[in-house]
């Protein structure tokens, strides 16, 4: 992940943070200990995002319906800016995403956040998906077409 272009790794990290269960992320952030102070550029606010889909899955776009989304932006003392946008209405979740995003731009903290937050959450997500995948795969089915009597 570290060799990737900065935008790509930032995008991946933000995705991991946003998809993590909020309590798990909160635990990881707490475990980081003392963190630098930050100022809000945008306090957490909840609004709506219109979910677009495509007709037939890949045709023209249409508006399916909205989802609640919470976003915030903050700045650390060294000038690193963190952006947090999450589906749902949990301001703490958005704040933790933004703090981790900012710390990942901060040379002093980036390594620790990667190891103690991102990597931990990625492993937890993989385990969650693997567990579910085993359950769901057990319901895979092979249907047989029966030979009819008249042949």
């Amino acid at each position: 992940m570290n060799e990737a272009a900065p935008d790509v790794s930032r995008r991946l990290a933000l995705g991991v943070l946003a998809c993590a269960p909020a309590p798990d992320l909160a635990d990881c952030v707490r475990a980081l200990g003392e963190l630098p102070r930050f100022t809000w550029l945008r306090q957490p606010e909840t609004g709506l995002v219109m979910l677009r889909a495509r007709i037939g899955g890949n045709g023209a776009r249409f508006n399916l319906g909205e989802a609640s989304v919470t976003r915030c932006t903050l700045r650390l003392a060294d000038g690193s800016i963190g952006v947090g946008t999450v589906r749902g209405r949990n301001p703490r979740h958005a704040e933790h995403v933004a703090i981790c995003d900012a710390l990942l731009q901060h040379p002093e903290y980036a390594g620790r956040v990667q190891a103690q937050v991102i990597d931990v959450l990625v492993r937890a997500e993989q385990a969650r998906h693997a567990r579910r995948s085993v359950q769901v795969s057990a319901s895979k089915v092979d249907f047989f077409t029966l030979v009819r009597g008249e042949d």
Binding site: T46, G47, L48, V49, M50, L51, R52, A53, R54, R61, N63, L64, E66, A67, S68, V69, R71
Partner: peptide, 11 residues
């Protein structure tokens, strides 16, 4: 009661 923040990338 909520404002629109934007449109998603097509799902």
């Amino acid at each position: 009661t909520l404002k629109r923040l934007g449109d998603s990338v097509p799902l």
